[in-house]
Write a protein that binds this DNA or RNA. Structure first.
Length: 210
DNA sequence: TGCCAGGCCCTCTTTAGGGCCTT
């Protein structure tokens, strides 16, 4: 599969705007199932961190005061990612902040987002739920650090995405899944996932027992 | 004044409602 960039934001709220700004971002580049590069930074958008968010993330207003400006961080992470296709867990959330923070510095997103949460709902229906931390534990993937910090969550989402790609290849015998396939799969109604996967071209031969 | 995210997904649904998931 082509390289992908998995990103994760920490923010002051649930939606961009006056009450919602990014406080931290991480991006990891994944090639051939391995994380090959990492970017992580707190960012100072001139906002205060609500007590609930500080308790959740450990990120305080004082930490942000000492962080580089949000505009500088977004320019750096946008350059780090380039045109690499994007992935995030519950990508609708991260996409909103990615687009909003880029717009503040006059930039626009150039690539599509795939969502590891929508994909896990389709490919891991037996999981007890689809929270990132719980999926990581359920699939016995590595614990990458403190949950609700951007780099740890981005690495967990990257590991989960690699796991989902492995499921596509070994369980569903899709020979060469692409980011475009992930974007299409996440929009397929759950009841039609099996039919969709059976129709994929380039499937490898069925496994034969010895 | 009152509201305050929003798309996905399931079901005791479809002329709707509520939980999930992200911070």
């Amino acid at each position: 599969m082509e390289p992908i960039a998995v990103i994760d934001f920490e923010t002051t709220g649930i939606s961009p705007g006056q009450q919602g700004r990014a406080t931290e971002i991480a991006a990891v580049l994944v090639e051939d199932g391995h994380i090959v590069a990492r970017y992580q930074s707190l960012m100072n958008a001139g906002v205060s961190v609500p007590p609930f968010i500080e308790a959740l993330t450990g990120i305080s207003t004082r930490m942000l005061r000492e962080a580089p400006p949000a505009a500088q961080v977004m320019r750096e992470v946008a350059a780090f990612v380039g045109d690499t296709p994007l992935v995030a867990h519950n990508a609708a959330f991260d996409q909103k902040f990615w687009d909003a923070e880029l717009a503040r510095i006059g930039l626009a997103r150039r690539q599509a987002f795939a969502c590891s949460m929508l994909l896990s709902r389709r490919l891991l229906p037996d999981a007890p739920n689809h929270k990132l931390g719980n999926l990581t534990a359920w699939a016995q993937l590595p614990v990458t650090g403190q949950a609700h910090r951007a780099l740890a969550d981005a690495e967990m989402a990257a590991n989960l995405t690699t796991y989902l790609l492995d499921q596509l290849q070994t369980r569903h015998r899709v020979a060469a899944p692409t980011h475009s396939l992930l974007c299409a799969l996440q929009r397929v109604p759950k009841a039609r996932v099996g039919e969709f996967l059976r129709q994929q071209p380039g499937k490898s031969a069925p496994c034969r027992s010895r």
